[in-house]
């Protein structure tokens, strides 16, 4: 225990204010202060200096989040290579080059295309799976197990499995659907194959979020609607779907942010190459290629920063939308 905790409750505490103003004389607490209030004051003092609680996290955070961010910003204005030696300042050269680099736009396009395909499919499939699992009364554990299990696999394993599934002639997709052509070797279907694999792998996560939301809808709403003569369809449209609106917002936001950063399963399915006719190179992949294959760390950092700005814009837009909606509710 520190001495502050032991000191009498009547002593005015300067440290209570976080800004740390100099010890201005303050009125002594009225003698009539209740015992409860004095306990609260003592407790409040005991919980000052909470810095020690957050210090370990902040140290890791500073080292592995803030430093790379600052370092990336600095490197993006240099021509640094992978060794970090002899880097010189080049101003905005990296940025102007990146904005003119067709591969930056192409890879951004591939990531955006992937996102546009995945997000709506995930929302619809996850919702359908959740409605199904929620309404079947028997063996509830079985549906959760089967719908969610793929999410537990590592992305690298998923990539290999679906490379095997889509393998021409010997793959299961070829066998079951009799697909004449191999999806993995054609520009038009290359990204769709990744989307199929990704849906199979990640739909379980959004499914769980929807399932939890469905279970949170109060039963009496349905009972009241049933009394008013609403059928199953009416209850779905007028009660369930409107009440799932906020969870849908969450699923969409999480999926957009995750999908824009797609990398793992794509490179594993295309053996770390750019895909047929370079049609599956994503933003993350291009950045890493510039950094680790071409050793252009400065240029890669500039692309990273541009990418970070895009991601941040999406995240901030969501926060803004949420705040606006909250104000609308009030």
């Amino acid at each position: 225990m520190t001495s502050a905790e032991m000191s009498p409750a009547a002593t005015p505490s300067v440290r209570m204010t976080t800004v740390g103003t100099p010890a201005a004389p303050r009125a002594i607490r009225p003698v009539a202060a209740t015992a409860e209030a004095s306990t609260r004051a003592r407790l409040g003092r005991a919980f000052q200096h909470g810095g020690w609680f957050v210090a370990p996290f902040l140290l890791l955070y500073a080292l592995f989040v803030l430093t790379p961010l600052a370092r990336g910003l600095w490197l993006s204005f240099t021509d640094a290579n992978i060794t970090g030696e002899d880097a010189s300042f080049v101003g905005f050269d990296n940025y102007t080059e990146a904005l003119k680099d067709p591969l930056v736009w192409e890879s951004l396009g591939h990531s955006a295309y992937f996102t546009l395909l995945v997000v709506p499919c995930i929302v619809v499939l996850a919702l359908l799976l959740a409605l199904l699992a929620h309404h079947i009364e028997h063996a509830k554990w079985l549906w959760r197990l089967c719908f969610f299990a793929p999410f537990l696999l590592p992305s690298a394993v998923v990539g290999n499995m679906w490379r095997w599934m889509f393998n021409p002639d010997t793959g299961l997709m070829d066998h079951v659907f009799g697909m004449e052509s191999a999806w993995l070797t054609q520009k038009s279907t290359a990204m769709t194959a990744v989307v199929v694999a990704t849906l199979w792998w990640t739909v379980g996560f959004s499914f769980l979020l929807y399932l939890a939301a469905l279970q949170n809808i109060p039963r009496h709403l349905y009972e009241a609607a049933a009394l008013d003569g609403a059928g199953p369809w009416g209850r779905l449209v007028h009660i369930t779907l409107p009440l799932l609106r906020s969870i849908t917002g969450l699923v969409v936001a999480l999926q957009i942010l995750a999908s824009l950063q797609v990398f793992d399963q794509v490179v594993v399915m295309y053996e770390f190459g750019p895909g047929p006719e370079e049609s599956t190179r994503t933003m993350v992949q291009y950045t890493l290629e510039q950094g680790f294959t071409s050793y252009r760390v400065g240029y890669a950092s500039a692309i990273s920063i541009l990418f970070f700005v895009i991601i941040a814009a999406f995240a901030l837009a969501r926060m803004w939308l949420l705040r606006k909606r909250e104000e609308g509710v009030r």
């Binding site: 790379p68 961010l69 942010l257 950092s301 990418f307 991601i311 995240a315």
Partner: peptide, 13 residues
Amino acid sequence: MVSPAVLGVPLFT
């Protein structure tokens, strides 16, 4: 908003 996917190269250095 920061992940190894977004800031991989500076994180590596």
